[in-house]
Design a protein around this nucleic acid. Structure first.
Lengths: 261, 261
DNA sequence: AACAGTCGGTTCAATATAATCACCATCGGT
DNA sequence: ACCGATGGTGATTATATTGAACCGACTGTT
């Protein structure tokens, strides 16, 4: 199965900044032999996950992913549930609101709404949010199973900015704090000058399945905004959880209950 | 690479009617050993292509496909280009308009807009459109490379309705006709009582990459509607082609030119 | 309560599988 | 004409995949 794993890993090298990748570059990036890379890319093309520019021969994400996304959206609507909530959240806070879901072992941004003002935070569509460096990730971990948390913290923790917190002990404390308050905060841990606040969203069996987040320029963050964001965020998290047919976990409910008191 | 192929084939068993599939059923459907199926499903889960219901243990399409779709949409927008055109087309014809793109070796529906009336055709999101039985498929073939056409016609041609045309010779004639007129027609070939008309859309190198289609209840189809659909459809096809940064093929341009004359 | 028939998941030997290196053909710039 | 890229291909070796049997858990029936 390692070969399937490697093949699917190829897809992760495509980002919005690197939308098209040639064979040699793809082999170089993945560290896989060129011949093997070519064969895997061919299979991915055959299934519509990649497609090849007829002239440049470069590969890019294929239309097959659109098909699968539409299919999933039809069976288990996310966009239609999440977007209105995000829009309202963005309107209320006048900051960027985005939602992320656990996709495999990464947290992936699946929707974002930006406020109507010049200086605002932009979230790249499909961005992978590192658990340890983002509010979304910490909010997720705060309500994830302990084994999951340990697995994440055991991995090498990449440093994205000077302020990135890469100390497992520190992170554990912040995760605990997020579990107590119901929201997690991360200031400039992933991108400079961005301060994010996040709350968890839950699936049918009260397991955490993602997060909803408000991201603001750090300079704009103050106690008033912090307070506003925290309350709206928890409402949004509950709304999305409900909309997806989920159940908020006991821990989360009591956390926001105690805060209100 | 056969193992990657098989693993990705698993994803094709998920449809809107069969959104969740258990391990045993998935093994049965695919004809792959249960152990192997389990391993492949595990890998697909790890990459976010599938996810597992925590209680029922059944698999369903994962959030990772949403991520990839957003990514592709960000680099190569189709929804934002296609949807307005489809909406206008649906308004003008008062019938269902949908677009499809080549995803691997299948034609997949990637967008559809239904008119505001009771009796209308519904297109399942992410539906795979068989080349020989749909107007979309025939329109595509009419402008595809001859080898591609032969490859498709060489395969066993499934019969979907009593009216499905499964005769390669017949199909070749209809494909030729579509190439001459610029639009393809299929009446009840895929679904009973649905009559579709389709035109091709092209990519950057004037290669056909999909189709745009109007689907109406067969009973409602008449010469007036046929005429209206044909003209609007070709406009829509050109608009989408242009919007995607494509170039209409010579054959198509001259076909619609001769028809106008 | 024992049973049969599911289910999801795991094990380990047998074997079919994919990885590697070398090589081609082609393109673009110097 | 060269050089260094590029995308792509074939055949051998070594490796990872396979699949029957098995396990524990659950469900409904006898």
């Amino acid at each position: 199965m390692r070969t399937v794993d490697k093949a699917l890993k190829l897809l992760d090298f495509f980002t919005d900044r690197r939308a098209e990748i040639g064979l040699s570059e793809l082999a170089r990036l993945s560290g896989i032999d060129k011949a093997t890379t070519h064969r895997m890319a061919t299979v991915l093309c055959r299934h519509g996950f990649l497609e090849q520019h007829p002239q440049t021969k470069a590969y890019r994400l294929g239309a097959g992913v659109l098909r699968l996304a539409r299919l999933r959206e039809a069976c288990f609507p996310v966009d239609v549930v999440v977007n209105p909530v995000l829009r309202q959240l963005a309107d209320e806070t006048e900051e960027t609101a985005h939602a992320s879901l656990l996709a495999g072992e990464h947290l992936a941004a699946v929707g974002s709404v930006e406020p109507d003002r010049g200086n605002r935070v932009h979230i790249e569509p499909g961005l992978i949010l590192p658990f340890h460096a983002t509010a979304s990730g910490l909010a997720f971990l705060a309500f994830a199973r302990p084994e999951f948390v340990e697995k994440v913290l055991a991995k090498p923790l990449e440093r994205f900015t000077e302020a990135t917190d890469c100390d497992p002990e520190n992170l554990r404390e912040r995760i605990d704090a997020a579990a107590r308050f119901g929201v997690a905060v991360s200031d400039m841990g992933f991108e400079s000058d961005v301060c994010s606040t996040a709350a968890p969203i839950f699936g049918a069996t009260a397991e955490v399945c993602g997060a909803v987040t408000v991201a603001a320029p750090s300079a704009r963050m103050n106690d008033n905004l912090r307070q506003l964001v925290a309350t709206r965020l928890t409402q949004a998290a509950l709304a999305i959880t409900k909309g997806l047919g989920g159940t908020p976990s006991e821990v989360f409910v009591s956390a926001i209950g105690s805060r209100a008191a």
